[in-house]
Write a protein that binds this DNA or RNA. Sequence first.
DNA 1: GAGCTGCGCATTGTATACAACTTTGGCGCA
DNA 2: TGCGCCAAAGTTGTATACAATGCGCAGCTC
Lengths: 235, 235
Amino acid sequence: MSAMPISTPKPQDVTQKVADALALAIHEHRLAPGTKLGEDEIGEIYNVSRTVVRAALQSLAHVQLVEIQRNKGAFVASPTPREAREVFEARALLEPRTARSAASRATPHDIEILKDHIAQEHAAMDAGDNGRALNLSGRFHIELARIADQDTIGRFIETLIARSSLVIALYWRRESALCESHAHHALVQSIADGDEQNAEELMRSHLVDLNSALDLRDRPVQAQNLRELLQTTAE
Amino acid sequence: MSAMPISTPKPQDVTQKVADALALAIHEHRLAPGTKLGEDEIGEIYNVSRTVVRAALQSLAHVQLVEIQRNKGAFVASPTPREAREVFEARALLEPRTARSAASRATPHDIEILKDHIAQEHAAMDAGDNGRALNLSGRFHIELARIADQDTIGRFIETLIARSSLVIALYWRRESALCESHAHHALVQSIADGDEQNAEELMRSHLVDLNSALDLRDRPVQAQNLRELLQTTAE
DNA sequence: GAGCTGCGCATTGTATACAACTTTGGCGCA
DNA sequence: TGCGCCAAAGTTGTATACAATGCGCAGCTC
């Protein structure tokens, strides 16, 4: 609580910081699915040893943000259409309940936080920073789970949001705009009103909208992955 | 592709094997909640280095089977009553849907596997090996998720089953018997019949039964944890 | 005698060194 | 010329060494 003038060199978990940095880069679509994540490379970037990098990568692998192939290395995960569908099915199962619970528990302070999130989303979109906008949009859902005060389900939702970011990177159809902030605004309104039924229903339809903005028939082909595709002969 | 007569010394992931061994010990209640899991100690037991042990422990920490406190070490997780309630809430949300899906997709071979599981459960119970019976009972639910062919939700369920084992270790009331194999048998019957509605409903009531066999008002006190309780003054 | 301070041990966090595997380039042979 | 094998480089898997933090006990002060 007192002054902390300079230099808290490594106050907290370094591994977590590396994992967070990588996760953020993935969420903001700075790292495309399929990208190789070499241990030495990352270690040099963050000035940490491979030990730390490996721990961070394993942590990300557990939430399926990266895929680790033994003796091959870590790659940014590349969800298949099947996985993409499963992710949104799971969200459809969990999040409406969470929205309902949030509506019944949200404090005025929580409402402020949510509104602030939306404002930031708008700002990012206006600035043309789609990556940041997408990340904030996801964090909105995570914030909802926090308000719902369901830690266990909240963690599941966190991983689903993270994977959703990858799904969107791969399968988003350009025709549909990222105009979801309106849906978020309506959600906040119903939550502020304590209208549980409406919140649940809005979340359900919001997820349906998101899902219908995906084109899961397309192949998960990114420019960068061409080479990977060519070696998909074996298994 | 040719013969592989003997000795594939370390064919697969060593870390995973250590993690599995520890998880099994926890599931079978051989390791009580709160038990300290020293890195050197485990490393000696399995003849691996601390590097491997640390990776295994972090893996288990991610599914909340163990809790890692920085600079303190790893301990078998000790779910609070709140966490226990959340775990079963989440299961109630996910598993009925899974049971329904399993009923619609199960092949005759799947039915065989499920019946075999139940037989093993019976055998373990008859042998008085409650730990093994409990573990098998959990794996029954995981097998259901596999049959339902929902990998994403299946992974969530796996972690919930794992934590359920800890919850049961802490909060199971002795009065109620472990007579769930009957419920499992009825479930398999409805799944074999392809009766989705019935399967979903049976799973729902099965989870309610399980939940009502817990006494969440009790403190998470185990003999071994006495010392830990005494140092719970701070926080 | 009670409480506090400082040192020493034990354990964890991080870095580095070594071993095993995968890949790739080139050379030889058909 | 094309196929296949071998070797060397690079990357990951594992073990060990060093640094830092926490814990406990002894001894001192009051």
